[in-house]
């Protein structure tokens, strides 16, 4: 399950949808918006995406995580639009029989999303705003 949403992310709901009694480990990762960046106070972020491609890429990340890690399932939700400090911008739930694979798959998915999925954030400060440009190494 992968999703782009414009409202608050329901991380607990994602966990409930993904986890099943046969799973011995449920790892939930929430990426949250920081109120500071490079010494400046961040008022809010705006996330933009190339939505059709971002959904395909998120699905590829999911499939690659399932192929390369001993997990039973993994779900990803990324938020778009305006997000305030403290709010969740991305939630990932990985479930497995054992914890190591679930931890690793979560980290793998975060790293892949940050380098391959066409989503961008703009940081808004007291005075001005800047597009953040990430690291596309590995593409």
């Amino acid at each position: 399950m992968v999703q782009l949403v414009r409202e608050r992310i329901d991380a607990k709901g994602l966990r409930e949808r993904i986890a099943r009694p046969e799973d011995g480990a449920v790892v939930l990762f929430e990426g949250t918006v920081r109120n500071h960046s490079g010494g400046r106070t961040v008022k809010h972020l705006e996330y933009h995406a190339y939505e059709s491609m971002a959904l395909q890429q998120l699905e590829e990340v999911r499939e690659e995580a399932l192929r390369t890690h001993a997990i039973r399932d993994i779900g990803i939700i990324h938020r778009l639009g305006t997000v305030h400090p403290g709010e969740c911008s991305m939630a990932i739930v990985a479930v497995a029989s054992h914890r190591a694979a679930a931890f690793e798959a979560c980290r793998f998915a975060v790293d892949r999303i940050k380098s391959a999925v066409p989503i961008w954030k703009k940081e808004f400060y007291e005075n001005g705003a800047v597009w953040v440009e990430g690291d596309t190494m590995g593409l």
Binding site: Q56, M90, I113, P118, W120, K121, W131, G134, T136
Partner: peptide, 30 residues
């Protein structure tokens, strides 16, 4: 980064009539 019809592509990728081409700055989601 370049995309053709919502898939990553390279500068050498040929384009066809009706294609949707996208120019993407380094991504920064998450």
């Amino acid at each position: 980064l370049f995309a053709r019809n919502s898939r990553y592509a390279t500068p050498d990728t040929p384009v066809q009539d009706g294609d949707e081409i996208a120019f993407l700055p380094p991504v920064s989601g998450g």
